[in-house]
């Protein structure tokens, strides 16, 4: 962003963000390398604009409710491990907004994004400036070494490509995050995100066309592709996010366990089962997918249990 662009971004933010949110984007921990970028290319102004957009979606479109934010570490490295879904993968952005606005002090979740996105102009630049990092093991290790809060979807792109009847049935977790957590002694926070897997019900996947286009899947939904790009606008499913107590595998396993494929697979399965249990539990408590009628109690900032809802 040019210097003039940065000035305009701040003017925008002053008008459109609440005083609390504005203070949060001004004070979050940002390691400036000298020219307004952090070591992974995040720019405070771009991250702020992304927050502005996704905060509006978080609040008004998806009406996100969350529980257990006190389980997210306020300092030091941690890996947040949620389920992944929704065809258009904005579940990560909504969770990042949720963590940013409910955690004190605010922290940016550095998501590990599939590398295929790095090849797309505009998309790759936007993701990088907003604080996301493309999925290479070295990038994850560099992030945890620097004490960052990392968000990682062990289901990978196959998670967002689930058909509607497969919703909330987790795909097999990749094991890379366990190896890194053991090697660098990093806690893992299991997260369940309810709502994402109904926002764009995928009825079929045109796999040959996807291969031709070089994308992980080509979805057929009730609205896409016959409504064109507008068909990708997600339905206003209500989001419920739960953060579980951190799993500190490194307390029971030495760093060398990261080289044992049996241990690593077992621990990845353990995290997968935990996230699945959280999803099943949240599904059993949910009364409606959209929940458009019930007004929400305004509890800004959350209560002593770490629960938060958006004001109506």
């Amino acid at each position: 962003m040019t210097l003039e662009g940065r000035r305009i971004a701040w003017k925008f933010a002053e008008r459109l963000l609440s005083p609390g949110d504005l203070a949060a984007v001004q004070r979050f921990d940002f390691q400036d390398l000298g020219y307004g970028y952090d070591p992974f290319g995040m720019e405070r102004e771009s991250a702020m604009l992304a927050y502005l957009v996704f905060n509006a979606l978080h609040r008004h479109w998806f009406r996100v409710e969350s529980r257990g934010i006190q389980n997210v570490p306020t300092t030091g490295p941690a890996i947040l491990v949620p389920n992944h879904g929704g065809v258009v993968p904005i579940d990560g952005a909504l969770m990042a907004v949720d963590v940013f606005k409910n955690l004190d002090p605010p922290r940016v979740v550095r998501y590990i994004v599939d590398t295929f996105a790095a090849g797309f102009p505009f998309v790759s630049t936007f993701l990088s400036r907003a604080g996301q990092v493309f999925g290479d093991r070295k990038n994850v290790e560099d992030l945890v070494r620097r004490g960052e809060l990392v968000g990682l979807f062990p289901e990978g792109a196959k998670g967002t490509g689930k058909l509607f009847h497969e919703r909330y049935r987790l795909r097999r977790f990749n094991v890379g995050f366990i190896e890194i957590a053991l090697r660098h002694r990093v806690p893992i926070v299991p997260v369940s995100i309810l709502g994402s897997e109904e926002q764009a019900p995928m009825l079929a996947n045109l796999a040959p066309l996807a291969r031709l286009m070089g994308v992980p899947y080509f979805p057929i939904t009730p609205t896409f592709p016959h409504l064109g790009p507008l068909g990708l606008i997600p339905l206003p499913a209500k989001y419920h996010i739960t953060y579980e107590t951190p799993l500190r595998f490194y307390e029971e396993h030495p760093p060398s366990a990261a080289d044992d494929p049996v241990v690593v697979r077992m621990l990845a399965d353990k995290v997968q089962v935990r996230v699945q249990e959280m999803l099943d539990d949240a599904l059993s408590q949910r009364e409606s997918i959209f929940d458009l009628g019930s007004p929400l109690e305004p509890r800004p900032g959350g209560n002593e249990n770490g629960d938060s809802t958006n004001p109506p």
């Binding site: 070591p39 290319g41 590398t115 790759s124 493309f134 999925g135 290479d136 070295k138 560099d142």
Partner: peptide
């Protein structure tokens, strides 16, 4: 390429 890490060792 797209899968290159940010910091190359």
């Amino acid at each position: 390429d797209p899968s290159t890490p940010v910091y190359l060792d």
